[in-house]
Design a binder for these strands. Sequence first.
DNA 1: ATAAATATGTGCGTAGCGCACATATATGGT
DNA 2: ACCATATATGTGCGCTACGCACATATTTAT
Lengths: 184, 184
Amino acid sequence: MVKLFFVRSAHIIHRMENGIANLLGAFSLAVMDRIEQGAREVVGRGGETPAALIVIGYGQGMTNDKLRRILGLSHSGTVRLVDRLVSDRLVERRAGKDGREVALHLTASGAASRNELLASRISAVTSLLDVLSSAERKQLATLIRELLARQDTSEMDRFTICRMCDDRVCTNCPLPTSKGQHAR
Amino acid sequence: MVKLFFVRSAHIIHRMENGIANLLGAFSLAVMDRIEQGAREVVGRGGETPAALIVIGYGQGMTNDKLRRILGLSHSGTVRLVDRLVSDRLVERRAGKDGREVALHLTASGAASRNELLASRISAVTSLLDVLSSAERKQLATLIRELLARQDTSEMDRFTICRMCDDRVCTNCPLPTSKGQHAR
DNA sequence: ATAAATATGTGCGTAGCGCACATATATGGT
DNA sequence: ACCATATATGTGCGCTACGCACATATTTAT
């Protein structure tokens, strides 16, 4: 009898814990739906193309291969993605220091599109967020910040997670930068 | 001098508020990356196909057209999506009550894939979530729940947000069900 | 100097999707 | 009952985004 009660109780707890995961999954889906819709409206392209534009704009001499790893695409997929950005006149291929590398640079209109992209993303999330009070938002920010800070991430993981981040507003990123391993 | 200070201060506040949005955007991206990767491994397909399998499995005589609106796809895109599910033997087209409609039903293997899909999704989110303490998770759940509860959503919006939700664990969905308007 | 590693580009195919059009069934007005 | 309109599905066709296998150029290591 006690045992039966325990088992049933464990099920309920299990359901509650998973309920949190389910809730967060639904919310994340809603957030990304809005971000992706806005991004498509701004640059007229989907998939990883908007993220690529943002990543290239960080501007530390991005190469095709670094980009590939950050976006999690195949090599050829990345080459074709850059082809699209180039044909849209948003990106230029220049000579890299290493004779093999290609240095990716935003054109003026690429930089403009990137800014629109970042603004659209912030606005999409904000529109969901502003039903909360300022205090609630602060609470939420603290929790998400902790959640991210405690993740076990490689350097490349961090770039991947931050591939759409707005470097104009992201002061002190919570992702651990010194923790462990290098992802090369 | 005072004015200058005020302006600068407003900028800083602006940056902080947007910092929350940026953080949440990055986190949502990380969550969806993991969910989508798992989904692709389970069903071998991407895009809205996994969501379609889950939605069809809710089982209230789903039709092609309802599915289309929930997934936010074009009509033909939805027909082809169902074609893929049928050719994968995960879904069957049966006669609907209305002679025009097609009633979509999961096959046994479709139902099994759907369960794997849901489990994979919960596990993906949980693996990110379990760096938080139980108290922190509860706090986070409360905030997300409030955030969702206060959104102004049409009925169709709700189905869309919940298109990957695990009906086995999602007791009392926070999304407002009686609020306003009908999306038809 | 030659082998291996690194970085890029290309041919080719496929998945996922939209537009425009065609078809079948239902509904409403006269 | 009849016909226009609305609703639901299916199809031809094209395009975007992507991966695999292969080719090429440059650098690094032995």
